[in-house]
Design a binder for these strands. Structure first.
Lengths: 354, 354
DNA sequence: TTTAAAAAAGTGTTCGAGCACGCAATGTAA
DNA sequence: TTACATTGCGTGCTCGAACACTTTTTTAAA
């Protein structure tokens, strides 16, 4: 009844040879006579040998230096969570010799990204996790890393055709559709729906466009085109100014504004405006559980947040590298993280996943 | 810069003693002179020693026989997911010597539960995971297992004061509040809201009452008492009959019925009724991603499902036992799983978590 | 002071896989 | 025939923790 664990030694005994020879067959090293090799391979199959990962990693003691190229959390608190995810994964994998070096760049500065990306190359890590938020600037490096044989995992921002080991993040299109579904559920009367890209350089972030597409197509697909008018707007403003003017104007133009969908983590900016102007009936959906967003969620001004699970992105990113490098597992090219819907009542559970 | 891995040997050298003595201090076995013990403890703290789990489990090679007392998935497909979770955890932990024996009972038969519970005792497992859906019948066994020194983890149904190692599942009260929040968001005009307990023996399942409380109190707390009238009803019916009559009658009594909250996984029964009668405007929220529910979710008749994450419950249940038995970790008395909000657009991600 | 018992501390083997080392058998050239 | 390279394969140490076993030291009794 019990499954006996098959060891190299067992195989060796059965094949009337030594564990050294079995080892050579298993790892294709050294030379082994053909007949012996085949005998051993047959026995391995027959006994369904699986190497004992525990013993394996105890012995090998190999160090795996992973690099993470990721924005500075002090400049945009969204990035705190991926950092935490990285650290959580590092803790779990330290046993297996994993060590992560962070290369932190300024999310508002392409040059700092380039500088750090160059540093990564010089370090020759065994694997790389990268948030490629600068599309154009990142492109040349992918080739460089590929040439150096460094496997890289993308997260947060999906880039096609750069042949990463894996992409980890959300399906932006679906994400937009989901936001649309939620807002539509809460919309009680015909009106205008705003897609707001707040303080973001649209030209360099394709995923926001994809979100908008998903959002618009939901309304089209449900044949709600004539009930709800979807408009979109880039709202950029310097820190000290705020977005009041722009939204005032927008409301003048569309007095029947019923809902706002903020495509990034800046929903709290819109929420502040809604609160100030006591606009209780305008529904609001945004992204990410950063502090200010949580506050407005608890106040009921932001109705729902969609969680991009940034912690999970960092965590799984490292784990995928480990699965590839250490455990030699097959890695799916894309790992979509769930689109979690968060509201006041279930917020807690998503804040600190054990 | 590199974190050196601290070994027992390192501690021994620093304390000018042998690894045997350090071992005795670590495991409180044998006798150690007080001054030496303290010296060693200080060094352990100072160097922040963490035992190498890999080496640990390689050596110990101990078998852990866990038992799972859980309903038959063939009689209620809700239970398929916990079974899968169990198996997933077993696979991951096989390396550590974990083996699970399932004791499957009939979820409609108390006597079958009792019979299987007795069997568990006879097997003397090292740990037990149990879905105690029969409150009264389960009670005496907890004492028995405690006397035998078998740690048990409860899941799915929370029972107070039986001193389990841990409860894993949802916060029922919150769950009810969440359902209320969602329905309220979608309710466009004043009306009646129904809490439906479908085919469930309320007297033996306190958690459904708790859900209802959470639901009702949401409406009270938000001072929506006069806008929405919350009523609740037990809807029991034999397989061949259906619930049509009962709902027909209910609608006659409350023509302004605007939403239904089904407190268990039977939302599809209500959905079938709504579909048959083309009642598009009645919002519907229920639980669990079982097949029929998914179908009505995709059709848009069920608006949202709350995921009780039954797979996760099985998975984490086993993992908590392993954490306790194998890794000697501290276990929280309650592990609440997230209240996931599921709709057509994000359903996929919750179906088969890798 | 001797001696036995109890207490404290040290030694060495084991788990399974990885891998360095080295031995033996055969082949090849001077 | 000697010298030495090549091929094929076996041996034995290592990783860190567990634990059985042995040795040394302390304490108490004779």
């Amino acid at each position: 009844m019990k499954k006996k664990i098959v060891r190299i030694k067992d195989i060796a005994e059965r094949a009337q040879t030594s564990k050294g020879t079995v080892d050579r067959v298993l790892h294709n090293r050294g030379r082994v006579a053909d007949d012996v090799r085949e005998r051993i391979l047959a026995i391995i199959k027959e006994l369904n040998y699986e190497p004992n990962l525990i013993a394996q990693s105890l012995k090998s003691q190999r160090a795996f230096n992973l690099a993470a190229l990721i924005p500075d959390p002090n400049l945009d608190s969204y990035w705190e969570a991926p950092h935490n995810g990285l650290e959580k994964a590092e803790k779990e994998l330290r046993q297996y010799g994993v060590h992560i070096t962070k290369f932190i760049f300024n999310s508002h500065s392409e040059t700092s990204f380039i500088a750090k990306a160059k540093e990564v190359g010089r370090e020759h890590p065994d694997g790389l996790l990268i948030a490629p938020i600068f599309y154009k600037e990142a492109l040349p490096f992918f080739k460089e890393w590929a040439d150096m044989g460094i496997p890289y995992v993308l997260f947060n921002t999906q880039i096609e055709h750069v042949n990463p080991l894996c992409y980890i993040g959300q399906d932006s299109y679906r994400s937009g559709s989901l936001a649309a579904k939620i807002l539509r559920f809460g919309l009680h009367s015909p009106g205008t729906v705003l897609v707001a890209h707040v303080n973001e350089d649209i030209s360099n972030s394709a995923h926001l466009i994809t979100k908008e597409e998903g959002f618009r197509n939901y309304f089209k697909g449900e044949q709600l085109d004539d009930t709800f008018k979807v408009i979109s707007k880039e709202i950029n403003f310097p820190e000290e100014e705020g977005l009041d003017k722009q939204l005032d104007e927008l409301r003048k133009q569309y007095p029947d504004l019923g809902a706002v969908y903020v495509t990034n983590s800046k929903a709290f900016e819109v929420a502040a405006y809604l609160e100030k102007n006591a606009l209780k009936d305008i529904k609001l959906v945004g992204y990410d559980l950063i502090g200010p967003n949580q506050q407005y969620l608890n106040k009921g001004i932001i109705d729902f947040l969609i969680n991009q699970n940034p912690l999970g992105q960092g965590y799984w990113g490292i784990h995928q590298l480990a699965n590839h490098l250490i455990f030699k597992k097959e890695i799916p090219a894309i790992k979509f993280l769930p689109l979690d819907i968060i509201t006041k009542e279930n917020l807690d559970y998503y804040l600190d996943p054990q």
